[in-house]
Amino acid sequence: MKITLRIWRQSGPEDRGAMRTYELDGVTPEMSFLEMLDTLNEELIGNGEEPVAFDHDCREGICGACGMVINGEPHGPDRTTTCQLHMRHFDDGATVDVEPWRAAAFPVVKDLVVDRSAFDRVIGSGGYITAPTGSAPEAHATPVAKAAADTAFENAECIGCGACVAACPNGSAMLFTAAKVTHLNTLPQGAPERESRVLDMVETMDAEGFGGCTNTGMCTSVCPKGIPLASISTMNREYLRALRKG
């Protein structure tokens, strides 16, 4: 396969950046998108050029490190992470646009790498439970209703990749924050901080410069883990409840 790549190149946070075009030959359908970029980088290094910087870690679709906007869609045409996207989803001779996540809260560090530490600060402000450390707790000590366990698990699947922010026309982090709030607020283990969690996480989310939710549903349509839009409604409900309780 031969692929024409148009990739966002930006040498650093202060650089203006621009799209650069690369022709890449010898791409095979079973290559992952990241392996295809590795191949390009090998070629670039061989030519004495700067390789394309991109985030990646597990390459198994579970860590949330990788992520880029491919042809205008976060993680590309398949509902998965970029590392699990394979080149068989592209035609031979296709032109593929690759850009970094775009949001005020996610400044570009270099090329396709953005600073997602805003997510860490949202988590730090309430995305935890208070539990004694030490040996693992007895599994039956805290009963959890099946429905609550299912909801919590569905939301716990969020890997914090940031595709929701990248897809949202408002650069909003509502789906991410909602997944964390719903996950912990549904469980009895999260009950002691139920109110402070949602109030503090939303406050941090707003302070980090993310936009508001206009319920377009773009976030959930690109989420590699399928976090439902309804989680945002759950967070809104939790937020208003917490505000009423003062």
Binding site: A103, A104, A105, N170, G171, G209, N215, T216
Partner: peptide, 25 residues
């Protein structure tokens, strides 16, 4: 006020544009 905030949250847009939200939205 929300619109101003939303627009400021995406200062640099995508080169490859894709409008996929509904017309009403």
């Amino acid at each position: 006020q929300l619109s101003r905030r939303d627009i400021a949250a995406r200062p640099v847009g995508y080169r490859h544009r894709r409008a996929r939200t509904s017309y009403a939205t």
